[in-house]
Design a binder for these strands. Structure first.
Lengths: 350, 350
DNA sequence: TTGTATGCGTTATCAC
DNA sequence: GTGATAACGCATACAA
């Protein structure tokens, strides 16, 4: 490891003071333009590299944002992170990412680690099993801004970036009803999380408005993974054929797809026997046959907005500070899995 | 932002010197056990947090590893990163991740950024369009260790962690031949990358050993995305039915699945008309019907090994320094998409 | 086993 | 416009 060039080296070579070099490198308007250029050129020439550690030590900032997600294994989540990366890196911020694997304990220890690493701000989507946010207290106490995305905590005094889950579920369910479905099963996630609770509300509301009685037995709660989709299919198959639902609205695409595939293998026709709507517009929704009707959940956008919101908070923007929720637009993508009636797909997309 | 507790604060309160505190916090064996305990207790009590910036500035290390991947949108890649995270965090290292989006220019600028952030080591999987590794020169010059994974550069003086792509492709192709296929199409990625070149070699070798002439027209090169899979399907459909291949071996699962699905929609039977083998054991391989036969590419393991290898290099381990390649075991997972002959799947898995 | 003194590279404050 | 200097928090060489 040869020696690194520092501002002192530049200062010596250019016959200037370290202070001037420091200012020049940051293109301070207080310095002569020509001097700045000389400094920049010489820095380039000598292979100078800015030392973030010295700078951060001095500035008491880390220029690092922490992200805690339940799992990094879905197209949705990687899109969110990609969106965050875009905005953060543009502003010179680094990201550190960790997974809670849906476990409260892991979420807690990850939050702690990040706190100790002195992240400037936290972006978090809560685990299934998280029932309170005491583990975020250190952040609140030190006034380190926290932004929730996707899964937030009701009544928390932070900003949350999400979609209108209730309305999305309402749209999805209404669409199924309009296709003639009367017995719509709803496969959802842990109702601890407000997003699933809101989806359930939207589902109920659609039923109510169309005078379809709500049947608790048609709501299944699970972790929405591959196996859960298969299990739901098995539940349906175990029913008396006359009692089976004529549609299933799943709170994610993965479970919907696996449920569909399993039913198809057992001779059920999709959408004729049972129509399907998923949630997320995951890549898999375009892989099954028929393609899965789903809610387009714009992950990249969510990530962008969450970070830019966090940066506003870091800069003390009062408008953002007084915001509770930021709602990103989502839409229903109608595809084959829910089209009982023949109709023009294009029209439905509008 | 209230004041942070430093070792000076602890020193004052405990009537010790900052040096002793510093040593005590790191449990230096040179310090009295009781003193260490007193220090640790008081640190806990006062809410002391270690300052990495001061420490790194002093130590001239960042305890950060850089990762550059083409894209973070596949199950394979997220598994790799998860594996890296596991090993790195255990050793107190942070990761910073960036995507090249398969573009040489972006890879270059990302490498530059990481160089300037002074990462202690680099983990990289090359972009399609990367034809040389001049942009990694600064790392080599400064003796910052670089480990390639998945896609490496032939003849480079660094370690690369990968599977035996040639052998995997050989196994896949041989399996298809054993199923009675005689006209096997191969859909592959950019042959700039050695992994695709090696897969092609394995494919050719299998043909050769079974006296099947190699037909250049049956090899298609693309970026292996959804659309490329569909395009290949269209190419096949446009052929005279008598000339169509009886099998397709794809260099990833995504393209294989989309190709399959499109063909099925046009009335082609899988595997009866055309058998399929993919590559990666992506989650989607278990979503299509019939399930896709594929090569299990153990991403998590690759990530683990790559990081632990990098850490060995950082610690000056000579054995690793003199290693060129680390080959991780992969295996063929036989599933429905390639089973023309009825047989016991269990047996084939062995 | 503990203490003293110094430097790591940058930036902010104040002075010129 | 530019310079001198102190401070950020930690870790080590050297001293005791």
């Amino acid at each position: 490891m040869q020696k690194e060039i520092t501002i002192y080296d530049l200062a010596r070579v250019l016959n200037l003071s370290p202070a001037t070099i420091s200012r020049g490198l940051r293109k301070s308007s207080v310095i002569n333009q020509k001097t700045i250029q000389r400094i920049l050129d010489k820095a380039e020439e000598m292979g100078y590299r800015h030392n973030n550690f010295a700078s951060n030590l001095r500035n008491k900032r880390t220029k690092t944002l922490g992200i805690i997600v339940p799992r990094l294994n879905s197209y949705f989540m990687t899109s969110v992170v990609a969106g965050m990366e875009d905005v953060a890196s543009k502003e010179g911020y680094n990201l550190i990412i960790s997974q809670s694997l849906e476990k409260k304990e892991l979420e807690k220890s990850n939050a702690n680690t990040m706190f100790n690493k002195r992240i400037d701000g936290l972006l978090i989507s809560l685990a299934y099993t998280t029932t309170d946010i005491a583990h975020l207290q250190p952040f609140f106490e030190k006034q380190i801004p926290v932004v929730f995305f996707d899964r937030s905590f009701p009544g928390v005094e932070s900003v949350s970036v999400t979609i209108d889950n209730r309305q999305a579920a309402y749209k999805a369910t209404t669409h199924l009803i309009e296709q003639g479905c009367k017995k719509i099963m709803h496969l959802t996630g842990n109702l601890n999380r407000d997003i699933y609770e809101n989806r359930l509300k939207g589902y109920k509301q659609a039923l109510l408005e169309h005078a379809i009685p709500f049947n608790e037995g048609l709501v299944q709660t699970s972790t929405l993974n591959e196996q859960d989709g298969v299990n739901t299919a098995k539940t349906i198959l175990a029913m008396n054929p006359a009692d089976r639902p004529d549609a299933v609205f799943c709170a994610n695409d993965i479970s919907a797809v696996h449920c569909m595939v399993h039913l198809k293998q057992q001779g059920i026709s999709i959408p004729e026997d049972i129509a399907f709507v998923g949630f997320n517009n995951d890549a898999v929704s375009r892989m099954v046959e028929p393609n899965l009707t789903t809610i387009d959940y714009p992950g990249h956008k969510i990530g962008e907005v969450a970070v830019s919101c966090l940066l506003h908070l870091l800069n003390g923007d009062e408008r953002v500070k007084n915001t509770d929720q930021i709602i990103i637009h989502s839409s229903l993508l109608v595809r084959g899995s829910s089209l009982k009636k023949r109709c023009n797909e294009r029209l439905l997309l509008l």
